[in-house]
Write a protein that binds this DNA or RNA. Structure first.
Lengths: 304, 304
DNA sequence: ATAAGACCATACCAACAAGGTATCAGAAAC
DNA sequence: GTTTCTGATACCTTGTTGGTATGGTCTTAT
């Protein structure tokens, strides 16, 4: 049995006439007759009754007609789906993210991607930087989102947003009266540091910055994630430094202050990481959406 | 895309190595390589990554593998089912029956048939003789069961059972005292005639018999079916003559009496009818079961 | 009744595609 | 560095598909 034979069979069954079917198939009648004979022979079943007016399906033929249509439908569906998958429009994309990445950037990208490729199932996996690298190498995720990253030979890291830094203060603090604050505020107030995993990380970067400005903040508290840090700042434990995207997080009692004398390089990158020798068409299409979103929205950087 | 290519694709995917796959497929490696290349080309999608150790499915390849397996399963299922249908082991058999035929013969045959061919869906249609012929010609039924039938050029009628006749009497009647009765009982008792459709029919046959014996029964009541006739006999309206199989019908107050001087030819046939130029393999297998059942059970005739 | 038309089946030929053998090219393992 | 895997390529042989011409049978029209 052969897909071509099935195609021929269906047309012959539909036309009830081998000659007309041959016309519709753009072949001549004798080869078509032969293909039908071969199909019947290979199955050992008579599929058509030969009448003076043409041919007529037998009972087994009627059954096969139904099955043949199903088969052809399934085949063309398989072709379509495979091609879609080849263009990165169908399948699954496993994305590694970290806690506060969900606040602004990632949702925008994901939204744009889902809109463009509705048949790709995006699965988010929350894991810290080190785990992301491991998961990438084991192919458990296809792409990850990260902040500070030391370069690795087998992994590409692409900066998709550079975010300015803001100071989170309690609205009960005297600092709340100012519209903006100087960078040195960090030297004078108790400092809430985060995260405490995945070195080198955001807090390391901050400390380096402060050192360049000639001071070191006094760490009042070390916490795991941005949400906890902001919550502590809101209740007056001290101040903390957050990337622009985290200012989307409005907790009661917190205010975010821009820094008017922000030093050169006092910003933090959001990067996406993926394997250098990846082969996923889905990742390709994800990256292209990512780059477009990133370009069109300098928004991501300017966003308060 | 081709069923052979799909088969090759599956084996290559399973082996992860074109050479080994070729071995398993009993072909040499170069044609297999080419088939895979052609499949990829026709889809416009890379299905395998070539690694130094062999080949490895890409994402679209993984998807296609699943689909390809489904397709092949569906194809082999279609082959099996078509062949089964060709042997009359799968499909639907529409059977025309008349009321009292269900009492004994038909259930036995159907039971035997279902056991032998469990995948054939037997659909019973109750209709009287004339309608059966019409339905046969219109292919609404494939086979019918009947009693007295005048021969028709396009229809074959096969006697499957010859049943002796019994007299049904009320247990309140003085006749109930006798173990058997003479045929002339019919001349003396009010007679309940059935059926009243589909001439020539059972009651015509009975009247001919009586005439041969030199009398005519006094018709007290004319009814449509055997069940009604027996019910009337039970409640003392008169007697009626029934085929052996109807004695399986035990209604309260009825007794069936054998006829000790049953005239030659005083029996009634149960026949099955079907189109002379039928082409149904299912009917063929039904008929062979029918003939076996009929032979093995002279029972059907001897049955009280 | 005979001829014409419509259908499928058969015979034979040409073109193409599938499979085989020999061999190449590149990467990994010794 | 050589051997040994791997898949890719070149070229040939054979089988299969499709085309043309024609036969055989049944229906239909004259």
């Amino acid at each position: 049995m052969d897909l071509r034979q099935l195609k021929y069979f269906i047309v012959v069954a539909e036309e009830g006439n081998i000659g007309r079917a041959a016309l519709r198939l753009h072949i001549s009648q004798p080869p078509l007759t032969r293909q039908i004979q071969q199909l019947e022979e290979s199955l050992g079943v008579q599929l058509f009754l030969r009448t003076p007016k043409g041919v007529e399906l037998t009972e087994p033929g009627t059954l096969l007609l139904e099955e043949a249509r199903n088969i052809r439908k399934l085949v063309s569906l398989a072709e379509e789906r495979t091609q879609k998958a080849g263009r990165g429009e169908l399948g699954q994309l496993d994305v590694g993210i970290f806690g506060s990445a969900i606040l602004d950037t990632i949702p925008k990208v994901l939204q744009a991607f889902r809109k463009r490729h509705p048949d790709v199932n995006v699965v988010l996996h929350t894991m810290e930087k080190g785990k992301q690298i491991e998961a990438l190498r084991q192919r458990r995720i296809t792409v990850g989102f990260n902040r500070v990253l030391s370069p690795l030979p087998d992994i590409i890291s692409e900066v998709i947003a550079t975010e300015k830094l803001y100071i989170a203060v309690s609205d009960q603090s005297p600092l709340a009266a100012h519209k903006t604050l100087p960078f040195r505020t960090l030297a004078e107030e108790p400092f809430i540091a985060f995260p405490n995993t995945g070195r080198p990380n955001f807090v390391d970067k901050v400390f380096t910055l402060c050192q360049e400005q000639g001071f070191l903040p006094t760490v009042a508290q070390e916490v795991g994630d941005a949400v906890t840090a902001v919550a502590l700042a809101a209740s007056g434990f001290g101040v903390c430094l957050v990337p622009a995207s985290a200012t989307k997080l409005s907790l009661p009692g917190v205010q975010y202050k821009a820094i008017h004398d922000l030093p050169e390089g006092a910003s933090v990158d959001l990067s996406c990481v993926y394997l250098k020798d990846h082969t996923s068409p889905i990742l390709e299409s994800f990256l292209s959406v990512l780059r477009e979103t990133h370009q069109s929205s300098g928004v991501l950087q300017a966003t308060l």
